[in-house]
Write a protein that binds this DNA or RNA. Sequence first.
DNA 1: CATGAATGAGGGTTCATTCAT
DNA 2: GATGAATGAACCCTCATTCAT
Lengths: 199, 199, 199, 199
Amino acid sequence: MPKRDREATRARLLEAARLRFAREGYDATSVRDIAKDSGVDATLIFRYFGSKKRLFDEATAAHAPPGLLDGPAEELVARMVRAVVLHDWTEYGGEHPLVAMLRSSAHEDTRQRIREEVCDTYVTALRDLAGGEKTEDAELRAELLSAWLVGIGILRSVVATPELAKAEAGDLAPHVAAVATALLGRPMSGLPKDGGSEG
Amino acid sequence: MPKRDREATRARLLEAARLRFAREGYDATSVRDIAKDSGVDATLIFRYFGSKKRLFDEATAAHAPPGLLDGPAEELVARMVRAVVLHDWTEYGGEHPLVAMLRSSAHEDTRQRIREEVCDTYVTALRDLAGGEKTEDAELRAELLSAWLVGIGILRSVVATPELAKAEAGDLAPHVAAVATALLGRPMSGLPKDGGSEG
Amino acid sequence: MPKRDREATRARLLEAARLRFAREGYDATSVRDIAKDSGVDATLIFRYFGSKKRLFDEATAAHAPPGLLDGPAEELVARMVRAVVLHDWTEYGGEHPLVAMLRSSAHEDTRQRIREEVCDTYVTALRDLAGGEKTEDAELRAELLSAWLVGIGILRSVVATPELAKAEAGDLAPHVAAVATALLGRPMSGLPKDGGSEG
Amino acid sequence: MPKRDREATRARLLEAARLRFAREGYDATSVRDIAKDSGVDATLIFRYFGSKKRLFDEATAAHAPPGLLDGPAEELVARMVRAVVLHDWTEYGGEHPLVAMLRSSAHEDTRQRIREEVCDTYVTALRDLAGGEKTEDAELRAELLSAWLVGIGILRSVVATPELAKAEAGDLAPHVAAVATALLGRPMSGLPKDGGSEG
DNA sequence: CATGAATGAGGGTTCATTCAT
DNA sequence: GATGAATGAACCCTCATTCAT
């Protein structure tokens, strides 16, 4: 681990920030906490990121799991569930980043960021499956399905209800397929046997 | 009326606290904010409640809408959706209290409080409908449906996706009925024509 | 000296601020310095004044010596010299407040404040003596005389040139009278025998 | 040309420092400001000058306009006024360096520097004109005249009173001659028709 | 020799909370 | 019992300066 390495230091700050901001939210996290966690002087946060706010923005920049939108259309919902249930979000404290960001949703900026990622990534893709704009209330049904995914993420990690907290992707497969098929008006498959390329 | 002043002051503090905590979250709310909002000296918060934390606990004490669990079983889900969509949560800044509390979920205490209300009120009632403990994965299916309700609440107010934000209970009725029926394995009705006894 | 006395505490803060700001200037003075000097907690600065800047503004609020503009017109210049030379400016570190404020003249706000007091109090009164607006270049001559007063104040305290630093009002009397008479185009008297009501 | 780079870099740092220190004062100027202005790494300030303080000292080293003390004695005061009013002090932000240094007069070192230049250059020369040490109060009268010059500089640039701010040397000529003659006890001329050898 | 990463002290300011009055 | 003055810790951030590379 080389000292005096700009990129390495930046990365360590980002890593610590990601974890703290996810677990404790923006307000409950101090720059000194992040500095201590990463073993880096707090001043460097301002040198490299300018402000606590900008560090937050960069640390929580949206990262949909790669490949989420690629692959067979009928498996899209299954891939989304896997993103919530299976994907390795250790970097974000074990939660889907969107769920973690809710903890900072007291600030309108954060709400805006959540809104953009939910709409651009999830709702948009699901709306296309639901028949696009030509179909009556495709948007609403896409939002309802997105709401379900978000809700599952919250009950799993924030609320930690007993069954969802320990559920694996396979446990949810039949229910997912049934509900998605009902909402989108077209057959959706469950989850493939293996976890695919997911971590 | 010196006797009732104490109660009136307490009530005003609680009211202001409820609104602030819901809108801005625990950390972003200062006791001085609450004092100013309610026109009361900040010291009284400590006299009456002991600490900011205890004021928060009391202000956000769970309040399921009255009558939520009463009435025909097949309309339970419809009543729950109405609790999220229709009920007048002005006191809590316009959001379902559970959704508002997510903003303060940086603290484990708050998570515990959310967990209890979600499980005790929503999951429990839905599990009974899904067949009780004797039925395979009734708990999981109840949690999945609860997750959906929570998710709808979040997308409506926090994320404010376009269609859900403006949806009324009637818009969601058919979808609700279809999904609930599928998940619970028994027919659930949509919403009655009128808003029922909801405020 | 009563504790927990709002006005007394405010006054002590103002006194300490006046001295520090005068001696060291705005930037070199920290709120903690002022707090330590006055034996008051630094937080109270913000409670009572809102910000360091507003404390500065209040501490350096212009105070022309009372009676400066009252009395025989031909003695006005003499009174002004006395204000610079004799008046007890201990509160401001021994200098005329305007001179002290030059130490903070890096900030445009302060320059504006100096400008207003110089123009409103000194230049205006002298311009009237020089013949008012109807006389050719009365304004210029009034400004030139004001410049002289300011310059005397600076050489006395900031630069501390040997003779001016120790000069008393009587030492300057003949020169003052001569120059003022020449500049204003009307006879100005020197200083009265005694120091009058000045401290 | 690696040999001259060092000198060129030093010169650029000095130039930027001169401007910043003059305009904003010592405390409000950061070494990073100077480094940025000159396009030079901030570390070089410490390599070349040792500290911010020593850079300040070097950047504000006294520079009486060349030729100030040469020429006919009866024109000395006129030349001094020209130094304040006409000389191109762009390097110092447009003000006479002594005036600019008042902005940093919170520090005794700076006051000492101002004192030396005022005494050695201005007061000394004027005292000789006033009759030298053998004449009663020649020193005082020399200081009074110096005070006037300093005061004019301040009202022109810091305070920016309307007439002095726009005055040119010619506007001040008659008043200068009259006052100087009165104070020094010997005839002083106004300004020559042209600007003379001034830059 | 020059770059820039690192440092530690201190800046103004706000916080929840306590204690006189 | 109610008011508000006082407190001290902590906040984000900037500073002049040093030390590896």
